[in-house]
């Protein structure tokens, strides 16, 4: 059964990308263990507003683990201590009465802090814009069943396509590498027949953009896959390396 707990919060607060930030401590009583983590932060913000203070800024939208908008580094883990979920899916029943919870933004050079726990992830959009698509104009598509695709291939492509673009992989990586994110998109199209024509060009363009935007290099630590809320497997990175080498050799 659900009950209520008290928690101590240590939250990173920072006015802007260039300003100095610091941890601020808050105490919160009567948190229902049935509440989600973000509902707990909503409660805190309600109390801050009642005290005429500015609320803690954080991103969230769908609150069901699919839009990728929420982030937060909770007790040293992107999206908190439970594997395979986003912050919005984390529930307070995972914490104990009296716990101190440390909450930080994603920390990566490529994701500057906008305010408090909100960061700028435009770099991810820019990587996708560089080549994360099939160049195909609306209108002239052949019948959807013209090209059979084996269930096994479609399922693996789907697993890669499941990436929600939240940035946890970058935040988890000691090098701030975006390889898991990039490899998921490259893999989806490398696996499917529709992606073949631009396969090499795509791998080159997306990797080049990733490097240009200041993401670090991959050293195969695997923290990204371990912390990924959608369990995107590390094998995607192996596939990206293969795709990239093939593309470079073909140049």
């Amino acid at each position: 059964m659900e009950h209520t707990i008290s928690v101590n919060l240590k939250i990173w607060r920072q006015r802007g990308p260039k300003e100095k930030g610091q941890f601020v401590n808050y105490h919160l009583d009567n948190v229902s263990t049935g509440s989600s983590f973000l509902e707990m932060l909503d409660m805190l913000n309600q109390q801050l507003v009642e005290r005429n203070e500015e609320p803690v800024v954080f991103d969230s939208d769908c609150r069901e683990g699919i839009c990728g908008m929420c982030s937060l580094y909770i007790n040293g883990h992107p999206h908190g201590p439970v594997q395979g979920i986003t912050t919005c899916q984390l529930h307070m029943r995972k914490f104990n009465d009296g716990d101190t919870i440390t909450i930080e933004p994603w920390r990566s050079a490529a994701f500057p802090v906008i305010r408090d726990l909100m960061v700028n992830r435009n770099a991810f959009d820019q990587i996708q814009q560089a080549g994360g698509y099939v160049s195909f104009n609306c209108g002239g598509a052949p019948d959807a069943n013209d090209t059979p695709i084996s269930k096994e291939v479609a399922d693996v492509a789907m697993d890669s396509a499941t990436c929600i673009g939240c940035g946890a992989c970058v935040a988890a990586c000691k090098n701030g590498s975006a390889m898991l994110f990039v490899s998921a998109k490259v893999s989806q199209f490398a696996l499917l027949p529709q992606g073949q024509v631009e396969r090499k060009r795509r791998a080159r363009a997306m990797v080049a953009k990733m490097d240009e935007l200041g993401f670090g290099n991959c050293t195969n630590t695997g923290a990204c896959a371990a912390e990924c809320p959608k369990n995107i497997p590390l094998s995607n990175i192996a596939r990206l390396n293969r795709e990239f080498i093939n593309a470079k050799c073909a140049e």
Partner: peptide
């Protein structure tokens, strides 16, 4: 029907049967 054709052409990984069809 055009929508399904369009989305498959974009590389949307719809669920498939073992025979490879949607």
């Amino acid at each position: 029907n055009n929508i399904i054709d369009q989305c498959v052409a974009q590389g949307v990984p719809f669920a498939r049967e073992y025979g490879g069809l949607l």
